[in-house]
Design a protein around this nucleic acid. Structure first.
Lengths: 114, 114
DNA sequence: TCTATATTTCGATAGTTATCGAATTATTGG
DNA sequence: CCAATAATTCGATAACTATCGAAATATAGA
């Protein structure tokens, strides 16, 4: 994780609808959510949501997979952990004051995490 | 920490010079750094840096104090911790998978933290 | 008070980002 | 192949953000 990637991730999250969408996906776990479901849930037009999901994808914060007619988005926990790490790695003059600011999927469906 | 404040903090950090400045301040600890020192260090004109520092201040990520002719900026660790908390609090369907994503000052100068 | 130093505010300009309807592409079932 | 569903791309517009020199403000010392 370098400055450029970090900035892209921060910029991606620094927007009302994208932050809300990302949080929905973080909660959804591996199951993820379809683009349309996210748009409906947030009351945002499909084309606008598509634009925002593309930004999150470009920042590496979400992944997508096709499932029949739907595109299912999932949060990329590794990317989120990398972001957290970058923001804390120089914390307190290089002395790491937190080793795990981590997060892994599972939970929701209790299935075996990737 | 709510969505609006989080977005302001994320937006503040999502900029090359501001992210760099914030990281310098995180490393500097309580001692902080003067506006001019940051500008010099990053090779950014004083007026531009002032604009960026104001953004960080408005987002609550840094504090400032006057010391003679200089304005000393310091990182606000509480705000940073709040940001981290907001980004992880809904992680894995509400099950907290990390309790301390925290960071406290001290370290650099080893003096008693405020 | 005058001068030097440190920083911020102002103002103009260029670049980037968000918005959303309409058109387009992809998939499925009959 | 046709109709229905799901999502993306396109295009125009409005709003916001970064930039930096010049001018203004604040502090300190002689």
């Amino acid at each position: 994780m370098n400055a450029e990637i970090t900035i892209r991730a921060l910029a991606a999250l620094a927007q009302e609808h994208r932050l809300a969408a990302f949080r929905l996906l973080v909660q959804a776990g591996d199951a993820g959510l379809a683009a349309g479901a996210i748009a409906d849930s947030l009351g945002v037009p499909a084309s606008s949501m598509s634009f925002h999901l593309a930004q999150l994808g470009h920042a590496g914060l979400v992944n997508q997979r096709r499932e029949s007619r739907s595109i299912i988005y999932t949060a990329d926990y590794a990317a989120m952990n990398g972001l957290m790490g970058y923001l804390t790695e120089n914390c307190c003059a290089g002395v790491p004051c937190t080793e795990d600011a981590g997060c892994s999927p599972a939970a929701t469906t209790e299935r075996n995490a990737a």
